[in-house]
Design a binder for these strands. Sequence first.
DNA 1: GTCTATAAAAAGATAGAC
DNA 2: GTCTATCTTTTTATAGAC
Lengths: 209, 209
Amino acid sequence: MPRAAAPDERRRSPKWRERRQAIIDTSAPVFARRGYHATSTAELCAANDLGKGALYHYIGSKEELLAAIHDRVMDEVMVGADRVAEAGGSPSTQLARLGDELLDVIHRYPDHVWVFLHEFPALTGDRAEQFRVRRREYERRVETILQAGVQSGEFRDLDPRLTAMAWLGMHNYTYLWLKPGGSLSARDVAKPFAEIFMRGIENLPAPRR
Amino acid sequence: MPRAAAPDERRRSPKWRERRQAIIDTSAPVFARRGYHATSTAELCAANDLGKGALYHYIGSKEELLAAIHDRVMDEVMVGADRVAEAGGSPSTQLARLGDELLDVIHRYPDHVWVFLHEFPALTGDRAEQFRVRRREYERRVETILQAGVQSGEFRDLDPRLTAMAWLGMHNYTYLWLKPGGSLSARDVAKPFAEIFMRGIENLPAPRR
DNA sequence: GTCTATAAAAAGATAGAC
DNA sequence: GTCTATCTTTTTATAGAC
């Protein structure tokens, strides 16, 4: 599944790729704190302790660096979604697990996710298109689980797309305050969120209501 | 309740204030589409059909313009919150109404809200502080309603802060897709969202569960 | 691979004519 | 009030020495 971003990332040495990855991870918090367009390449050099020549040797361009941060997030998120799909289980079980996985990524990569959610409009051309496709693919996963639950009767009759958006908003919005240093773990948040959402969409049998 | 933003906005003529407001509303979509830092003052001039001299005569600085867009959103949102508080009613009624009001603002001012949610980190100094205060004030409103519901027994025993964040995320996230031109009205979204959330937090009596 | 120096373009804001 | 011209700073990216 080629990603077509860097001209020939795979032809590079392992050392080069490793260094590039380190630069991506070091730059994410800088973009997160200052904003993509407000961050100069000079600041990136300072953060990475590199000169401009060396920096460009690894990143190609500022936007390519931004795209790499986006890919890092999407890669992690999709790995979690695949894990959930493989594990199987009832729709409600799968949705709860998906929430665990998503909040885990947000908790582990707060800066990358911040950049992902704030700066995606800065991507242009193919990179913007590729981003939209991957994001939509994830939204589809949520929608599909909801559809399955409605069909099986586990969830009440609801609009899967609208409900998926509600679920995504509830979880994604935690990027504003869910941080590794804080008092709450990803699980501490995922559990009460799942409790709210599952009760909210479950199909209560005949008695009561 | 002075807002201390523009040096002396109130001393200006009504005509000046009206023109300024028009510039704010015309600039919001430009910031929303291109991003604050990526938008040049030249682009703002073009969008408003004004020269630089005239533009600066009204806005003071680019950041002041950004702050004005933020204020426009917060003003509208707080008016809605006040309306809900005045109307009174049970916690669940109030929370549902607050959702109606919030989604109505998001639906009516999609560009302003987009800027509000994406570019707030670009505010600096006092403007950034003032923004944080107002945003927190709104979050408190949600929290307070939840607390009241828990105390009255209408809602089950839950963490008001965490639950408020879930509610806010669910609603705010609609800024990505809820637009005036679309097939859904604010109410079309608010109702199913309230349904999910109320069922999710209601305190079911003894029978069942 | 990494540096310094610099090119070339564009930014925000202001001055001063009208 | 509005314009054009310009000041000053900063930007991304590259060239070429080491």
